[in-house]
């Protein structure tokens, strides 16, 4: 599903993001990426949806070589990958439903289809009854679930979540992780970047550890070890 071949990223002037990463994530996997701050986790994640381009190496997503993806094609890639960030990135002047609908609107999806999809994804994240609220009227966990719902509107084959629980307490963290597991069970490949030891240990899924831009361990059913 996701292939990295000798991928390095150097930010100007010569800050190392990641170096010489080789990685293969199979369809339907749930992969956690852990590591200390500044070790290149976000850099790695951003490359999967062409937010950053590699300095060298090759990247393929779903069999599509996106190493030198044209600007024009980036939107197509983004519509196949759901993205969830730590800072929620909801539009405060739009309601929950409108925030979710927004992702479909800007992709040119018809109004009829939008009316179908929005309730569906809100149901998945268990927010069917809060569609008319504004982001400020939601708890952190609920807001993050809206972001997850929004990332699902295009039925992505891949979901990339960069510290989705970074701002959340234990209960809300559990909610989000359970949600990601549920999405993964539906067949979506999930890439989770996290700092959270309990989360990683409870998942009992594949764990990739980064240090100084390099993969130091890659273990099926791994544990959080730094």
């Amino acid at each position: 599903m996701i292939h990295f071949k000798n991928v390095s990223k150097t930010y100007p002037p010569n800050i190392v993001g990641i170096r010489n990463i080789n990685l293969h994530i199979r369809p339907g996997e749930f992969v956690s990426i852990v590591g200390q701050s500044g070790t290149g986790k976000s850099t790695l994640a951003k490359m999967m949806f062409a937010e950053e381009r590699p300095t060298s190496g090759e990247i393929a997503v779903g069999g599509w070589d996106i190493t030198n993806i044209r600007e024009h094609d980036v939107p197509l890639l983004r519509r196949q990958i759901g993205v969830v960030f730590q800072d929620f990135k909801l539009l405060s002047q739009k309601t929950v439903s409108e925030n979710v609908a927004f992702a479909l609107e800007v992709a040119g999806v018809s109004n009829r289809r939008i009316r179908e999809v929005v309730p569906q994804v809100l149901k998945i994240v268990n927010l069917s009854d809060k569609g008319d609220r504004y982001p400020r009227q939601l708890s952190g966990g609920e807001a993050q679930r809206v972001v997850v719902a929004r990332s699902l509107v295009h039925r992505p084959k891949i979901l990339v979540a960069d510290e989705p629980t970074g701002n959340l307490d234990t209960i809300h963290t559990r909610e989000i992780i359970d949600l990601l597991k549920k999405i993964n069970e539906f067949g979506t490949t999930v890439v989770l970047v996290t700092h959270n030891r309990e989360v990683v240990n409870a998942l009992k899924k594949r764990v990739i550890t980064l240090d100084d831009g390099q993969i130091t361990s890659d273990v099926e059913e791994g544990r959080y070890r730094l």
Binding site: P75, R78, V83, K89, S151, H154
Partner: peptide, 15 residues
């Protein structure tokens, strides 16, 4: 912010 989200969820540049 809105533009950032638009791009993240796959809006074309033209849009």
């Amino acid at each position: 912010e809105e533009i950032g989200i638009m791009k993240l969820v796959g809006a074309s540049n033209a849009f």
